[in-house]
Each structure stands twice: as structure tokens, then as C-alpha cells.
Design a protein around this nucleic acid. Structure first.
Lengths: 197, 197
DNA sequence: TTTTTTTTCTAACAGCGTTTGGAAAACCTA
DNA sequence: TAGGTTTTCCAAACGCTGTTAGAAAAAAAA
């Protein structure tokens, strides 16, 4: 009897529909335009249904944030496997962050509380800034075989350089001008890598 | 008869009270907690009064943003006068941005659409990124006597490095940890300056 | 004092996140 | 198939939000 299975499949579907719809609205109208009622309208359920999947709107956005970081982490792990040279690895990481922000700007906004997106908790950042098992931290460590403390500081600089550059670009530049900034970003990243080698 | 004058004085006072109250609430509860009704409550007027001073909540926040950029610009001009060495000037500029973000984090948030603050228009950034009469642009130009285009790119890098670092630090770090990041910021700024000289 | 102008507020609209209570549907059992 | 149980779902409401219209109150001018 696959009844339970069917129900669970449907639940998973609705859950991901909610997340996808939130992102769709945000991409179109910005996070300011995302409301529980609009999401409910689009997935053709009543608003209270959403609360069976997420405790609150805040938790819903936090899920999107965590998923975003998870996806990026996957990219970093992949890059670490594919390339041997840590310099090349970091350049690739920087590239993949940029691509991510271009392809999923609305997710990037949630990840960094930007442009109308807002999540109260800072929990997601802690894991991201932690060094244990952190692929990017290890790339920098290989590039800079100094004491651990120094590496963590450099890693934090890296974090701010990459995410900061894109954050500021996304919020200050009109959509059509963003792609022109990629070259500056890439050059800045290269300069940074060379300056810590 | 100073009736008109008295009225104008009072109007200016109420206007600045509105702005100050908005910032106060934001500092205490975040920009998410700022509402027209709360502001009205505190300045002891009814909500519609606020609309005699600002067309909308959005315009109110935009005023705070523009004032913030104006204040910083004043700092930069002052620094440019006081110090001769462009390297020293830039270090001081970086320092003053940091101090600003520590003393008025809620204004910084509005300036870069962070953490619940949101202004639709990107107008304020255009002037800030324009090179004409821009003190920081000129500092970089003196440090890097290359072609104009290159200077503008470097200036944009500077912009992203400083504001980006602080933006990311403010949104990702808990309040108590922020001060510990200043050293990393300062070192990053110094490294950047040296790398473009 | 009366008229005119200016200032101010009450009340309302539509939309927001969220919760409650119960209706409706789906399911299981006899 | 009928009855009972469980699960799924939603209408309605609460207290918020930004904003506006129109009337009331206050001040100034006549």
C-alpha cells in the first residue's frame, strides 16, 4: 500500500513548490513583494497551509539561505577535487560565487540580508566561517602555510572580499551594469591571491 | 512679526525629530521594527503628519541614506585637506568608514539596503561612484598615475573592498564580535593600497 | 467677532504574518 | 457498502502595516 509514500511525495512536492514560488516572486518583484498570501495564491492553497511546512516566514527564508550555502559548499568541494593548484582553485571558487549571484540573485540576497530580504538568525554564517572541513579554508591554508590563526584571518578577508564585492555590486548597480563589473571583481580576486602568496 | 519664522523653525525641528526617531527605533529594534505609527507615537503626532514632511516611508529612508553619504563625503574632504600623502589619506578614509559604521550602524544599513532596511532608488550611488570632484577618486589617482579608466576601476574596487567588508561583517557577525574584525579590515586595506601602488 | 487659512487628527482601505475552530475530504475498519 | 476515524484543509479573525480622504480644531487675519 503506497498511500503513505504517495502522501510523503506530495508533501515534498508542495514544500519545494513553496520555496520555488517564494524565489520566483522575489526574482520578479524583489523580496519586499514576497508574502505568504501571494505564495499561497500561486500554489493554489490557503495561507495557513504554508505553516504546516514552515514555522514562519522567517524560517522559510532561512531554509532558502541554508540551501544556498549548501549548494555553494558543494561547488567548492567539487572544485577542490578537480583542480590541484590552490591558486587555480581559489580563482574557480571566486568564479562560481559570481556565477551563483548572477543565476540566483534572489537567493544571494537572502543569504546576506540584502535588498528587502531579512532573516533574523545568524546561525548559517557560523558554519560557513568555521574552518573544520571547510574547503576554501584549506585552499588558503595550502597557499599560505603559516600559523592557523593567520589562515583564519585571511579566510575571513577572502570571505569579505568575494561576498562583499558582489553584495555591493548587486545593491548599488542597476541590473544591466552588473556584468561589466565581473572583470574588476576577477582582477581584485587575483590581486588578493597574489598578495597573500 | 516672527510668526512665519517660528513656524519654519518648528517645521525643521519636527522634520529632524522624525529622522532621529526613525534611526533610534532602528538602532534599538532593527529597521524591521520601524513603522510610521511608532515614529508618530514617539514624536507625539498622528501618523498622517509624517506625510507632510516625507512623501512616503521610502523617501524618509532615502533621506537618511543621502544624509549618510553626505556626512561621509564631508569626512573625506576633511581628510584630503589635513593629510598630504595619498596613502595616509586612504588609510584615514578607511578608518573613518569603519568608525561611521560602528557609531551609526543603522544609517549604514540604510545606505546599503541591509538587514531589513530597503530603499528602492539607486540614485544615491550614482553620485557616490562618479569621479568628478570625488575626493577618494582623486586620492587613488594620485597614488596610481595611470589612465583615467584604470583609476575608476581601482576606485570601484576600493568602494567594494571597504563597504563590502563592513557590510558582510555587520550582517554576518554578532554585535560583540564586530570590533575584533577591525584589525583584519585594516590589514586588508593596507595590503590593497600597497598592491595598487 | 467673524472669516479665512493653516494645522491636525479620526477613520478607513487594502494588505501583511499568524492563529483558531471547525468543515471537508480521505482513509481505515467492520 | 456504512460508520467511524484520521488527516487535510480553509474561512474568519487578530493586530499589525503604509497611506489617504475628509472633517475637526486651532491659529491668524479681517
Amino acid at each position: 500500500m503506497g498511500i503513505v509514500e504517495r502522501r510523503e511525495r506530495l508533501k515534498k512536492q508542495v514544500r519545494s513548490d513553496i520555496l520555488k514560488t517564494a524565489r520566483d516572486i522575489a526574482r520578479e518583484d524583489g523580496w519586499q513583494g514576497v508574502s505568504i498570501r501571494k505564495i499561497a495564491d500561486i500554489i493554489e492553497y490557503s495561507p495557513p497551509i504554508i505553516y504546516e511546512y514552515f514555522d514562519s516566514k522567517d524560517k522559510l527564508l532561512e531554509t532558502i539561505r541554508v540551501d544556498g550555502f549548501y549548494e555553494l559548499r558543494g561547488e567548492y568541494d567539487r572544485i577542490k577535487e578537480v583542480y590541484r593548484d590552490p591558486e587555480k582553485q581559489l580563482v574557480e571558487v571566486a568564479q562560481s560565487i559570481w556565477n551563483f549571484s548572477v543565476e540566483k540573485p534572489e537567493v544571494f540576497q537572502v543569504m546576506f540580508n540584502q535588498d528587502g530580504a531579512f532573516v533574523l538568525s545568524k546561525r548559517a554564517y557560523q558554519q560557513e566561517l568555521d574552518m573544520t572541513g571547510n574547503p576554501v579554508w584549506e585552499m588558503i591554508a595550502r597557499l599560505r602555510p603559516k600559523a592557523g590563526e593567520k589562515v583564519s584571518m585571511t579566510y575571513y578577508e577572502w570571505w569579505c572580499l568575494t561576498y562583499g564585492f558582489i553584495s555591493i555590486t548587486m545593491t548599488t548597480q542597476p541590473k544591466h551594469a552588473i556584468s561589466k563589473m565581473e572583470a574588476i571583481y576577477t582582477e581584485g580576486v587575483r590581486r588578493f591571491i597574489r598578495s597573500i602568496m
